[in-house]
């Protein structure tokens, strides 16, 4: 019989004597601090748990993130579909491997019960797997060969739209972010996400997953910070081809949509709550993937 260290009986939520973890930003595959040096304190759900610091990303951090995502776009878009699928699959594996940490973060910052946090994580992993499998099937399901009246071979294929802004809700922490990230990345888009408030630590932990899953540098860039402060800059940044936003605030929708017109951005809006929406089957929706693709139609003569 081994003897247990009494400290291990306590969950991490209650631990204040572990190694302190610093959450930075995820930009171009690196983990820098905000150029502004600012931070936000994420308060724990229970008084006994430890708080955490996350970076409060600035407008310049956003600029750098979009730049990184833009640079990564051609390569990721041109990557073999199967490779994209395998990387997403790898992310699912790594999420599972960090199960304890993710569950812990949901408990610590979102106040989730352990079994709920476990179920959410299982669901998130499933959503990721579901999307991973789509990578090399999208062209077959969303594309077509078109029987035109003449000697031309004509086909349509889906291609990624470009750099997508992802604005997930604050809770739950991991599941919505993954559910929004996967449909964007799977078709070859690159992304910049902003996780606000208590969702920050999960987002940056997911970034560590991405960094160890062969996701090419800059394909996904994760910011943490103040949504109110950064939303206008997300809305007006012309480097984004599309917005993917979960919100219950009609003003946010209005602001994003109004500014989207300046660059004819593609848009998809989701409800931020209730949490049951994110826990439902609705987060596995091919239309979400389709929203961030463009159909390219090519004509080629048939002749000798």
């Amino acid at each position: 019989m081994e003897t247990k260290d009494p400290r291990e009986e306590r969950t991490m939520t209650e631990r204040r004597d572990g190694v302190h973890k610093t959450y930075k930003l995820f930009l171009g595959g690196a983990f820098p601090r905000s150029e502004s040096g600012r931070h936000l304190t994420v308060t724990p759900a229970s008084k006994t748990a430890a708080s955490a610091q996350v970076c409060r990303a600035s407008r310049k951090d956003l600029r750098n993130a979009v730049e990184a995502a833009g640079k990564a776009f051609p390569g990721w878009a041109a990557a073999k579909a199967m490779l994209r699928g395998q990387i997403l699959y790898r992310m699912a594996e790594m999420c599972d491997a960090r199960r304890a940490e993710f569950v812990e973060l949901e408990r610590r910052f979102q106040g989730a019960r352990k079994d709920q946090a476990e179920r959410d994580l299982d669901h998130a992993i499933q959503v990721l797997l579901w999307h991973a499998g789509w990578a090399d099937k999208l062209a077959q399901v969303l594309g077509s060969v078109n029987p035109v009246s003449g000697p031309w071979f004509n086909f349509s294929i889906p291609e990624p739209s470009g750099v997508v802004a992802i604005l997930p809700p604050e809770r739950p922490g991991l599941l919505p972010l993954l559910a929004m990230l996967a449909p964007v990345l799977v078709s070859g888009n690159t992304a910049v996400s902003l996780s606000s408030g208590r969702a920050g630590p999960s987002a940056l932990t997911l970034a560590e997953v991405a960094a160890t899953s062969d996701l090419p540098l800059g394909v996904w860039n994760a910011l943490t910070g103040d949504r109110k402060e950064l939303l206008p800059h997300f809305a007006t940044h012309r480097g984004f081809a599309a917005n993917f936003c979960a919100t219950d605030d009609p003003e946010e929708v209005r602001e994003l949509r109004t500014e989207a017109a300046d660059h004819v951005k593609r848009e998809r809006f989701l409800p931020a709550s209730p949490a049951s929406f994110w826990r439902s089957r609705k987060v596995r929706d091919l239309e979400w993937i389709r929203s961030f693709t463009e159909i390219k139609t090519a004509w080629h003569p048939i002749g000798l």
Partner: peptide, 24 residues
Amino acid sequence: AGVVWANCYNRFDPASPFGGYKES
């Protein structure tokens, strides 16, 4: 681009999707 014509140009057909990328 949403439509790419190879060795032809300005072909249209009801069965062929048409529309743009970006600000098109």
